[in-house]
């Protein structure tokens, strides 16, 4: 007879556990939808809503990134706890790769290097940062078009296309949850309409309360902020880039060593609000060589050698664009 009270106790615990879980499985169906969104919102309004939802909702979701016949699964959790914004993106296969964010501090944990933190308001990972940043900047270079409705992840979704105005960059198609405004699917499409890369969500839970696991981030000790000691910022280069698609601006220029081959490079990073393009220039004694292109998903890597320098252009842009950028470089 001794086990009977224990059984009852166990039942009590499981019942209370269920009771605790209940609010988290509840979706935000009854959350008030802003009135102007009811009347055919524009693509820009949809993107504003996406950015807003990504910042404010408590969600727990999984997705896979599909490129070159390969799928990489991730989990993504976001929530607000004690007035602080918490976020975690974690790759589920292979070596551990994790990024956590507490307000404006993002920490990266990767298996092959020391963890480090960066002061920024968004995680750089498989989800384009642009989705949580300024939509106005994107609309300078891309036409935003609301296309149609479809069913993604078992939910009604709105398709928005971001079409490059000058055909110098790839197009983005994104499917947004009509109910919450969150991302359900994203695809990168080239000018021929071919699919290069896509992000497909496989699970989405929106809850009233932030995930308990995220709450633990508040107590976690974050790694130190990255010190940019080996880099010489704002270096004077012996070369310049003379052409870029309109809308690209320089985010960073420095000289540093590329790990693990210890290659000294001049480096410039450009961004158009959605896409990052890096230009590397390093001295070489190899013979001149015309452009060589490698591509993984939407990421293009172009190298050429001329005048004793190896030029490398990396980014999610069409190879013609990367080639034009590389060709435009002149040496003093």
């Amino acid at each position: 007879m001794k086990f009977v009270p224990f059984l009852m106790l166990a039942t009590c615990i499981s019942v209370s556990a269920n009771a605790q879980q209940q609010p988290s499985t509840e979706s935000t169906e009854n959350q008030a939808v802003e009135p102007e969104l009811r009347a055919q919102p524009t693509a820009k309004q949809w993107l504003l809503r996406l950015s807003d939802s990504l910042r404010k909702l408590n969600f727990d979701t999984s997705f896979v990134v599909v490129r070159n016949n390969r799928a990489e699964p991730y989990r993504w959790v976001h929530g607000i706890a004690e007035g602080r914004e918490l976020e975690l993106i974690s790759s589920l296969n292979g070596p551990r790769k994790e990024a956590i964010r507490v307000d404006n501090t993002v920490s990266y944990f990767e298996s092959n290097q020391q963890p480090y933190s960066v002061n920024t308001d968004s995680i750089s990972g498989p989800i384009p940062r642009a989705f949580t940043s300024d939509i106005e900047v994107i609309s300078l270079s891309y036409d935003l078009v609301e296309v149609g409705k479809s069913r993604i992840l078992g939910r009604p979704a709105q398709l928005i296309r971001m079409v490059s105005k000058d055909k110098q960059r790839f197009g983005y198609w994104i499917w947004l949850d009509i109910e919450s405004g969150l991302l359900l699917k994203a695809a990168i499409i080239n000018n021929e309409g071919e699919l290069l890369e896509q992000i497909q969500f496989t699970h989405l839970t929106i809850s009233e309360q932030s995930n308990e696991m995220l709450g633990q981030l508040l107590e976690a000790e974050l790694p130190e902020t990255h010190q940019s000691s080996p880099e010489v910022p704002k270096a004077e280069f012996k070369w310049q880039v003379n052409w870029l698609p309109e809308g690209f601006e320089m985010l960073e220029s420095n000289q540093h060593f590329v790990d693990p081959i210890n290659l000294p490079v001049d480096f410039i990073l450009f961004n158009d609000g959605l896409v990052d393009v890096s230009v590397y220039v390093s001295a070489t004694d190899e013979a001149p060589r015309k452009s060589t292109i490698s591509q993984t998903g939407a990421t293009v890597l172009l190298t050429q050698i001329r005048e004793g320098y190896e030029i490398t252009v990396v980014g999610k842009v069409p190879s013609q664009t990367a080639d034009a950028i590389a060709d435009s470089i002149t040496f003093n």
């Binding site: 960066v118 920024t120 985010l251 590329v258 081959i261 480096f267 990073l269 990421t299 990396v314």
Partner: peptide, 23 residues
Amino acid sequence: QKLQAILLDHQKQIKLQASKAAA
């Protein structure tokens, strides 16, 4: 190997970009 290193460096450099607002 060089291409791979540069590709990884590209991703790292993007991560290191502190957003102006946050900074």
